[in-house]
Design a protein around this nucleic acid. Structure first.
Lengths: 128, 128
DNA sequence: ATAATCCTTCCCATCATGGGAAGGTCAAGG
DNA sequence: CCTTGACCTTCCCATGATGGGAAGGATTAT
């Protein structure tokens, strides 16, 4: 399978497949005589795995670890769980941050008339 | 005031002050005879405004608009409110997304033993 | 006068992704 | 057999907001 079909089948763009190979997330693909990258069903399987890990929001560094664990039959599931929990902590921190921002904004916006008058507590707050 | 003191006073790094000037967010700074950027109290005031808008998570494009409204005495507060509400919508969308990710992960992680055994529903889910 | 600190511009890196150019390859159809 | 179009290759550039650092000039303090 060429890279275009692999991209289609896995949901990872050809650009990203080359990029992943480049940064060492994926092993170097087998090449045809003319230099085309060739992908097997197992390769597609791995690409899908990466794709889904991205969908879950895992950063690349964690995906590297997850891929290693995935292909390690003797892995302890505690390692996988540890990565997942750490990621959840990251998500939690981000959510908390965004919610705090939203809360502040909400308060400000609720005090803003939102009409043709120029006075506005939002600008006043930014001005400080 | 030189750029270093302006950075200190405003909480915006010298690097970022130059960058903001470069992308047109801020007007070109007055220069001394030897080419040093010089900042007035009004400049510091504007830098602080930008800084606080960043703290609220506004993207640069919105900050450009907010700055323009800030210096427009005839602005309608509805314009400011519109920008703030749009930003809140963005934050809301991000929060929803992160919460959805977290919810999925939580379910998966709760089913993972997290011990020395290799079987793990997290990897199984990623594998699909 | 000299050293230390500040300033200038310019380049590079992040992270994951896409756009696009220049040029080689392959498959289908006339 | 040759052309055409679709595909592939590598390489460079851009994103957004930020920092690091180098090379060289300016200012300030000793």
């Amino acid at each position: 399978m060429n890279i275009g079909q692999a991209a289609e089948a896995s949901g990872v763009s050809a650009k990203m497949i080359r990029y992943y190979e480049n940064i060492g997330l994926l092993p170097e693909a087998y090449r045809s005589a003319s230099g085309y990258r060739k992908y097997s069903a197992a390769d597609i399987h791995r690409l899908k795995f990466v794709r889904r890990a991205r969908d879950f929001g895992f950063p690349m560094a964690q995906i590297v670890e997850l891929l290693a664990l995935w292909s390690d039959r003797a892995r302890p599931s505690s390692e996988v769980k540890r990565i997942a929990l750490a990621h959840m902590d990251e998500l939690d921190a981000k959510i908390k941050h965004l919610r705090a921002l939203q809360k502040s904004l909400k308060t400000l916006a609720s005090h803003c008339h939102g009409d043709e008058r120029p006075d506005c507590p939002i600008l006043e707050e930014l001005e400080h």
